[in-house]
């Protein structure tokens, strides 16, 4: 679809804003609607749009499958690691009260922040990865 000028130009202008909105949803989720899952799917939608317009080969060059696979596992690791960190600091699993205060965020706030980061990483990577796996089977969309 790269030859369709309107689609190409509009998408090129839109994708950064979609990504920006995803990060806003991720990091502002503690204060407004949104959170890790929403941010992950919005970011994935931006990547999917990129794949539709510029072709999945180009998307794979920008975002190699290896990065996507590692990202999916890393998200769960961040989530579980936050829980283990709480245990190491003397609390219960996922009991963020024992986490230290960082940058003005209390323990609970820091825990929620880290956990949502893990969710966002896993969800966006999984969405992109599944699309890549599906479309690698056939011709370009």
């Amino acid at each position: 679809m790269i030859r369709k000028t309107v689609l190409r130009v509009v998408s090129k202008a839109l994708i950064p804003f979609i990504a920006l909105f995803a990060f806003y949803t991720q990091f502002h989720g503690d204060y407004g609607p949104g959170g890790g899952f929403q941010a992950g799917v919005i970011l994935a939608a931006g990547v999917v749009l990129h794949g539709l317009i510029f072709g999945l080969a180009e998307t794979r060059r920008v975002l190699p499958p290896r990065v996507v696979e590692v990202g999916a596992a890393l998200g769960v690791l961040v989530y579980g690691g936050t829980g283990v960190l709480c245990v190491l600091l003397g609390g219960n699993f996922l009991d963020y009260d024992v986490l230290p205060e960082v940058l003005g965020m209390g323990g609970q706030h820091l825990g929620v922040f880290l956990v949502e980061l893990g969710v966002g990483l896993t969800v966006s990577s999984v969405m992109v990865g599944i699309l890549g796996a599906f479309s690698a089977r056939g011709r370009e969309l």
């Binding site: 503690d30 959170g35 609970q108 706030h109 929620v112």
Partner: peptide
């Protein structure tokens, strides 16, 4: 929690 969004907490 120290955060406003109840859904997130």
């Amino acid at each position: 929690m120290g955060i406003q969004n109840i859904i997130t907490s």
